[in-house]
Design a protein around this nucleic acid. Sequence first.
DNA 1: TATTTTAGCGTACAAGTGTACGCTGAGATT
DNA 2: AATCTCAGCGTACACTTGTACGCTAAAATA
Lengths: 208, 208
Amino acid sequence: MSGVRAQQKQKTRQALIVAAFNQLSAEHSFSNLSLREVAREAGIAPTSFYRHFKDMNELGLTMVDEAGLTLRQLMRQARRRIASGGSVINTSVLTFMEFIDTSSNQFRLLLRERSGTSKAFRAAVAREIQHFILELAHYLEAETPCDANHAYMQAEAMVTLVFNAGADALDQDTQQREELTERLIWQLRYIAKGANHYGTHQVNSKPS
Amino acid sequence: MSGVRAQQKQKTRQALIVAAFNQLSAEHSFSNLSLREVAREAGIAPTSFYRHFKDMNELGLTMVDEAGLTLRQLMRQARRRIASGGSVINTSVLTFMEFIDTSSNQFRLLLRERSGTSKAFRAAVAREIQHFILELAHYLEAETPCDANHAYMQAEAMVTLVFNAGADALDQDTQQREELTERLIWQLRYIAKGANHYGTHQVNSKPS
DNA sequence: TATTTTAGCGTACAAGTGTACGCTGAGATT
DNA sequence: AATCTCAGCGTACACTTGTACGCTAAAATA
């Protein structure tokens, strides 16, 4: 009942996940991965793969979950930094860029499968992103003069811009990333400004 | 010298391109295409493929060009509609959504290869997008009270949002698309408002 | 201790891939 | 009319892929 058996199983299962993430890169996407190669890197026979996942798809969805998890953990850390006096926009952007940098393969997975060929994948990634939008919307509604609807649209726009900037950052060097980040911050300010303009008072009917 | 020969060659070349586009779908991306299948659909032997393209990569880059071309043509048409009295934001968004709808496979190609596994592809798509950003920036600088720098950032943000909304629209029904479009239009207004606020006068140093 | 469960292995196979090579016949060129 | 060019074909080959099947040994259970 010590669970030596189950413990070892979890270990190789994790080895498969790690192997799969390791094989992702700028020029290798998840759909390029082969069951055999992943199994090889994990140190097991190809057929043993099936003891852990029904197929590559199931592995992939697990990976999306894992990527979403680390992202969420990172953003929780960001919230802590903000609570102790950091600027919201700056801290959030910085934290996200950190994610791109230290977990680029996890980000790549989310980025690519967001528009990939499996509806289940797209939905899974969309759910992860939606998570952020809602959280940010909630924050904006509480902390800024903005009704719920505009808070949501504002959050959606912001998350979209941040996510896309992350994608661009993947191909860039430090210098370019700094410029990109600076532009991004300005763009987020635009949105905040605009949303607060339209989202406050009774300006809601038509724009000027 | 009549060119019967060259003419026929162009014809099968185009058949290959069309065949490749036809095989794209929600669940089939370019990297999933096989040379043999494309050749089969185009009605030629696999080995004849090489008479037209060095490899699938070269086909793909040609397809990106073609997709960019149709997009540019559509947007030129949008400019005409605007010139004859349409709202800029509404007309542009509507035209873009039309592109998603009538040329979804061309859009899918741009969308996916933007974050694909080939640097050349990513660069090619980025160039197409950059084209729009610059054009829009130029327009904004001329028509709104916005300095060049802010006009660029504003255009970049807008194009990003529109492009991403297009991606989301691919998976949605008419009802959802309408809501999405409406949200998008609000978000573009935010950006316009914010950019005009920061980009006018001498507010440029620090945000409030 | 005897029995059952199961993670992992090796073999085997059918299917699909890219592409090298040499041929053919119809246009183009001289 | 004689020659050249070259788009398209068929054959062939070496690989890689997913996965079905049955075995083994070690852990779990009874």
